[in-house]
Amino acid sequence: MRTVEAIAAIPMHHGLVLAAILFALGMIGILARRNLVFILMSIEIMLNAAGLAFVVAGARWEQADGQVMLIFILAVAAAEVSVGLALLLLLYRRFQTLDADAVSKMRG
């Protein structure tokens, strides 16, 4: 059976470990950086890592569902990044900075 060959070639948990490492790096980026552009990039990294986990699982059982979920994640990422970048531009016009801590002084 072909699935067995695939397992022999690459264990599924190696792909999942890669996804987990990428996700953890994105989370570290969100926690450590204060620039809003870097925070948005880190969110992209985390979404991408989630999609990678879906595709790895889909490849393990040779089903199309993993790639379908990746397409949905792509749609979510596109919508999120367009709204996020529009907010970032608005914030830059108003505060002249991209520091996330500057927004913590907002009232109402």
Binding site: A6, I10, L52, Q67
Partner: peptide, 17 residues
Amino acid sequence: SLLAVAIVFFVLGAPFA
């Protein structure tokens, strides 16, 4: 990084992804 992940997808047998 995204290009590298794309190659990982291809190697895993998901060329469309």
